[in-house]
Amino acid sequence: MKAFTELVKEYRADVLENVHYGAVCIVNERGEVVYQAGDPDHVVFLRSAAKPFQAIPVMKRRIEQVYGLTGEEASLFAASHRGEAFHIAALESIARKTGISEEQLYCCPSLPLNEQAKAERIQRGETKRRIFHNCSGKHMGLLALCKHMDWDEKSYYKPEHPVQQEILSVIAAMTEVPKERIAVGIDGCGLPIHAVPLHTIGRAYLKLACPDLIHEHNIRGAAERIATLMNEYPTMIADTHFVCSALLKDANISAKGGAKGVYGIGLRKERLGIALKVSDGSEQVWPCIIASILERIGYDNSDTIARLYEIVPNTIYNDGGLIVGEREAVFEWV
Score class of each variant (00 low, 15 high):
K9H: 14
N114C: 10
S80I: 02
Y106W: 12
K138P: 06
H81Y: 03
V19S: 08
Q165T: 13
V8W: 01
D39V: 11
P162H: 01
H42Y: 15
A55N: 05
E326G: 00
R124Y: 07
A227I: 10
N252M: 06
D150L: 09
L46W: 07
R61L: 03
R96W: 14
D187I: 03
A74L: 03
I63Y: 13
V27E: 01
I171D: 12
K147L: 10
I226Q: 07
E102Y: 07
G321Y: 04
I88Y: 10
E120V: 13
Q104T: 12
V24G: 11
H241V: 02
A172R: 04
A55W: 03
A144N: 01
I297W: 09
A117D: 05
R268H: 01
Q284N: 13
A3H: 12
G257Q: 03
G325R: 03
I182H: 05
N218T: 14
R96P: 03
A49P: 01
G261P: 05
V44T: 15
K179Q: 15
G320V: 10
R30L: 13
V170D: 09
P192S: 14
P234S: 10
T240D: 13
L113V: 03
L168W: 02
G264N: 08
V196A: 04
N18A: 07
Q54H: 13
G202N: 02
M140C: 06
S101K: 14
A78H: 05
N134E: 13
Y233D: 07
N114S: 05
F77M: 03
T200L: 05
V43G: 04
G221A: 12
P109D: 12
V33G: 08
A50E: 09
E283G: 15
